[in-house]
Design a protein around this nucleic acid. Sequence first.
DNA 1: TAATTCCTTGAACGATGGTTCAACAAGATC
DNA 2: GATCTTGTTGAACCATCGTTCAAGGAATTA
Lengths: 191, 191
Amino acid sequence: MTAQHGTPEEKEDGRRARGERRRAAIIDAALRVVERDGVAGVTHRAVAAEAGIPASSAVYYFATIDDLLVAALTEAADAYVRRVREATEDGASLDTLAEAIIGGGSPEQRGRCLAEYELTLLAVRRPSLRAQARRWMDLVAEVAGRHTDDPVAVRTAVAAADGLCLEALLDDRDVEPGEARAVLAHALRLD
Amino acid sequence: MTAQHGTPEEKEDGRRARGERRRAAIIDAALRVVERDGVAGVTHRAVAAEAGIPASSAVYYFATIDDLLVAALTEAADAYVRRVREATEDGASLDTLAEAIIGGGSPEQRGRCLAEYELTLLAVRRPSLRAQARRWMDLVAEVAGRHTDDPVAVRTAVAAADGLCLEALLDDRDVEPGEARAVLAHALRLD
DNA sequence: TAATTCCTTGAACGATGGTTCAACAAGATC
DNA sequence: GATCTTGTTGAACCATCGTTCAAGGAATTA
């Protein structure tokens, strides 16, 4: 009853505060493991090792592997939304959108993108995760919608954005942001 | 040295013939397992159980799980190419292409599509599988190329086709083939 | 028929992983 | 300080899995 109202800077339980921090660290570690070894590599022990904590601690916060994956997917979607929003809030230029989606081909972005894809595919098999996974597409649809009123164009742009990511992953070469831009522009009839 | 030339109906070793049949049955079973439980569900034992044979027999034909997944991916790509070629060889209508890609939303097609996606994503982490995985995209690019000369339009259509599949998987509802057709037509400027 | 090759199969070994549990430390509340 | 809550941790249990292996059966060849 002490932490009732909105201000989170209430006098809080220090134990819980540290717990929340550790929880977040575990999720981060889990995302790193997904990037490195894929969803299949996410085990309590592997994530705990990545986070530098004992395995039983990872179990304490995420009783099942599923819980951990759900948390990781949610965090990944959050990060993605943050990134794209930041890149498109002021000027909704197509270049920045393309770069935010494809990620410029840097290795770290590539790892992120792969992780996002794996988690999305995971969501296909778990109805409870679908809503989280859809946030990617919905966000791209929203941004695309600023450039056109044609719903088919928007659908095309969204689908193309997803497909471009997959191509970028499958090709080893760095995908030029210019190519992504050209495809998005084509889908949106901006060329 | 007996089975040297092209005619496969040479007097062949009956043991090997049955072996080849069993090998094919194992690959089929592996694909069914991928559809049902995902790539993560592919184990020697699970595939063997699906095929109704002892686990050690699956090991005899595919010494490692990787071998099994490679074979499954190759077979899935073969089947996909066969399907799309069959649907587009005579009249290369966009409707048939759209249906071949999206698959009319039938549950079995959905399972196939999901399996193809999972195997494709697997290929991202194994360079030796990339070539097989690319066959999907290359085929769609070829078919799309029959409708336009604009390379950007082709790239957009290919990317959109991949993205549409993912959307269809993520949405539970059956995706209307008409929607897929509209998106492809938009990408190819045929509307 | 004997030797050879190919396939079949059950059992087992070692490793990994999900999960449980009990003991314990540390902060919060009385 | 006593008590309660929260977090921490190492050990262990049990299941699953990849892989090995040896014994054998069946088709083929000599």
